[in-house]
């Protein structure tokens, strides 16, 4: 967690100081995508080789999958509803402002 924070802050400071020439900055997206694929492949490999995961898949897999879907659906819905709520209120305020 501390290393992640350090990486983010270091990137932010380097970006703010404009040390990196614009030409190189162009590549930051490509480096990012490459690093992402390395990360995902390695994560997949460690999970595929993890016997605890593979052994429990048969007995607990379905329940775990459904629970995971439940947590995602619940949290996405909660944020989505809250956003809809504030967006609507903003629109109302904007409409009220125009009326005055």
């Amino acid at each position: 967690m501390i290393l992640i924070m350090t990486a983010l802050i270091m990137g932010f400071v380097v970006g703010r100081l404009e040390i990196i020439p614009t030409k190189l900055k162009h590549y930051s997206g490509k480096v990012g995508s490459g690093a992402l694929l390395v990360l995902l492949f390695s994560m997949g490999a460690t999970m595929g080789a993890n016997h605890e995961v593979i052994n429990n898949l048969a007995s607990l897999g379905l329940k775990a999958l459904l629970t995971a879907i439940g947590t995602i659906a619940g949290s996405v819905l909660a944020v989505w509803i809250a956003v809809q709520f504030t967006v609507k209120r903003r629109q109302k305020q904007a409409a009220g402002g125009q009326g005055q």
């Binding site: 290393l3 992640i4 990486a7 983010l8 802050i9 270091m10 990137g11 932010f12 400071v13 380097v14 970006g15 703010r16 100081l17 404009e18 990196i20 900055k25 930051s28 997206g29 480096v31 990012g32 690093a35 992402l36 390395v38 990360l39 390695s42 994560m43 460690t46």
Partner: peptide, 19 residues
């Protein structure tokens, strides 16, 4: 590899935010 990939990625995210 996953750890360093992640750190590099987060660094580029910070880089974009900082610029």
């Amino acid at each position: 590899a996953a750890d360093w990939g992640l750190r590099l990625l987060i660094f580029t995210v910070g880089l974009d935010l900082g610029s």
